[in-house]
Design a protein around this nucleic acid. Structure first.
Lengths: 124, 124
DNA sequence: CCTTATGCTTACGTAAACGTAAGTCTAAGA
DNA sequence: TCTTAGACTTACGTTTACGTAAGCATAAGG
């Protein structure tokens, strides 16, 4: 199974070493240590991808932490499972609201662009 | 034409007075002044809505400023219009990337939820 | 006319998310 | 063996987006 150094992942995802170390410090990833050096396994790499996707969506790191931890949740007992499902439903609602925001913004931008093109026509 | 006080808008949008004043300080809105008091016109109210929508999408205030200013761009000359269209296209690409992120995240959450429900079934 | 509510400015404080040295260590190639 | 590249920790600095008084002005209701 492939592993990566911190520089490998920083290059791949376009972030700095500091960023990755910071995420570890905040408990978002826990790479293996070989001596003092960090060794990243596929699991860590995937988590980093999820973290950065959450970041693009404007979630805070603590929100991202709860989301990413859902992926690795152990089966657990019924109460915990129901709680997790509740959390997921909450997140989904948030995400759907955001998608609505995006669609509205794109529609607005389209309208502004149409106006621009009309003005351009008129100028020629 | 209706106008609003700063508290009116703060209540309507669920933000603090400080937030609105801060946006004015950063040049995102410029309400009229009656003496020292701020009077918000429909135009200001709409802009505030746009600002907060941008905030929900995780844009920084300076990014939001450029977006919101697109709405109020004066017709201008051909070069400026073409530049504006370019800006709009750039923003749209960004937004579409974000929508992809959202759709992927929702799909992931759906999968986790299905796994949860299966585990629940197994427990009963 | 007096009080209470609403609003204003100024300014220091703060949490989040890293940036940026500074100094150390170590493994690998010339 | 020397040095260079890659990694590490510690810790102070920075930017963004407001929070939080403090002190003063003004408008509106009883």
């Amino acid at each position: 199974m492939e592993t990566w150094s911190i520089t490998d992942l920083a290059d791949e995802y376009g972030v700095t070493l500091r960023t990755i170390r910071f995420y570890e410090d905040r408990g978002l990833i826990s790479p293996e240590r070989r001596g003092t050096q960090r060794i990243f396994h596929p699991r860590d790499r995937v988590r980093l991808g999820l973290i950065l996707r959450g970041r693009r969506l404007g979630f805070s790191l603590s929100q991202i932490a709860t989301i990413v931890d859902m992926y690795d949740a152990e089966p657990g007992e019924a109460g915990q499972l129901r709680y997790l499902i509740e959390q997921i439903d909450g997140r989904r609602l948030e995400l759907e609201q955001r998608r609505k925001d995006i669609d509205e913004t794109i529609a607005d931008l389209d309208q502004v662009e149409r106006r621009c093109r009309e003005d351009l026509e008129r100028l020629s």
